[in-house]
Design a protein around this nucleic acid. Structure first.
Lengths: 224, 224
DNA sequence: AGAATGCTTCGATGAGGAACGAACTATGCG
DNA sequence: CGCATAGTTCGTTCCTCATCGAAGCATTCT
């Protein structure tokens, strides 16, 4: 019985289904609030809170308090790498799905990441907005371009009427490995997509399904 | 509550102290019997047996029956990589020892990861092999370059005489946070290092200690 | 200030699972 | 054959820990 780093302690933190679901959700790269993580894990808020404090104590999470919101995020790339490694083993060992189910395909195309759109559609949209210089990206930051306010106003999105959360944020997309648009603007765009009924959210999933006319409309407005 | 690979199941297998000790012991690369693992984990034989069947069922171990002995070993490099990743997080998160003891120093330089070499030496070796284009790395995959076969043949490593395990694999090194070489090639190189007596294995540890002339020889062959 | 929201703590309940001793199976040795 | 060694299975005991409802803080909105 040798003494080493307490690997069992770390592994058992990930070994609870509720906590595993939370960590999995955080693999998207965005920090999430306790209630979102509770929903994600399928447990009540008190239970989630208990799990979160354990994960914090275990050093797997970081906490950013913003007013009455508390955003939990993965503690770092090393933790993310560990989750990825465990996921890899679980996939290799688990029932080998011959075909990646349709839900997985839909998730890759478009899904909800916290409160904004993620997936191939979202990455394409950000690319196009930057290309048209409506948004400007320096390094890893995204800022509004001069034509941003009128452009979004024309679509029905008012950039000024937003709370103090950052308007633009880059959020790393796990399926495409590139950034998509987060922040209040990202959230407002997702709101519009759902309000216009261009797409609907799959029940009990983060997948977002565009209707054929909805997809056309979306592409006309944001990719045109 | 999404459905994915059952990461909690795998993690909880590692999350029990007794099982974690067993897996840790198997990271040495040699297969061990149930009684040895019981001793290693500090539990009774029946308890160990129960744990071992769970690990088997979870697909983390392989079993080789030889007469009345049953040798348990890690199921593959992927599992070893996962254990390393978890160990890395545990070390990073655990009580930060101000001074990394001498054994830790040796571990950082060179150690056994399942059946191949890890640590700074191993990372440097992979870097050099890629630099010389003997190996090619695309994204996260490593493949043999055109000159690989003759190069390794000259050293006495036959790349064709290998089973169906992948020849090259990247394995994330927790101490350096970069990849080293796993797969059958990684295993063959470790074999050679030990066979040539360039280095010896520390008793009851995964540390690998190079002798001064052995280190020179290793660097001439693999870093030259 | 008061109300509403987001989150944590407390307390009670319950289920899963880790542990071991004893009994059982299998292989090897004289 | 019997005896010893290696390992698994069974049954029981026990304890941890996940879970939730209710109540308690904290922060923001009106």
């Amino acid at each position: 019985m040798r003494e080493g780093p307490d690997i069992a302690r770390i592994a058992s933190l990930v070994g609870d289904p509720a906590r595993a679901n939370m960590l999995n959700a955080l693999m998207g790269g965005t920090a999430l609030t306790a209630s979102e993580l509770a929903l994600e894990a399928g447990v009540s808020l008190p239970t989630a809170s208990s799990h979160l404090s354990k994960l914090m104590e275990g050093g797997l999470l970081t906490l950013a308090s913003q007013g009455r919101h508390r955003y939990y995020g993965l503690a770092g790339p090393q933790v993310a790498g560990m989750i990825e490694a465990i996921t890899g083993v679980a996939e290799a060992v688990g029932p080998k799905r011959v075909r990646p189910g349709p839900r997985d395909g839909a998730m890759r195309v478009a899904r909800v990441c916290y409160d904004h759109l993620a997936g191939e559609q979202a990455v394409a949209m950000l690319d196009r907005l930057v290309e048209k210089e409506i948004l400007l990206r320096d390094d890893k930051e995204i800022r509004l371009g001069p034509s941003a306010a009128p452009h979004f106003a024309a679509i029905g999105i008012d950039l000024d009427a937003k709370p103090r959360r950052p308007v633009c944020r880059a959020c790393l997309d796990w399926s495409v490995r590139r950034s998509h648009l987060a922040g209040t603007l990202g959230a407002a765009i997702l709101d519009k997509i759902l309000a216009e009924k261009w797409a609907r959210r799959e029940k009990d999933s983060r997948a977002v399904i565009f209707s054929p006319p909805g997809k056309q409309a979306f592409e006309r407005v944001f990719l045109g």
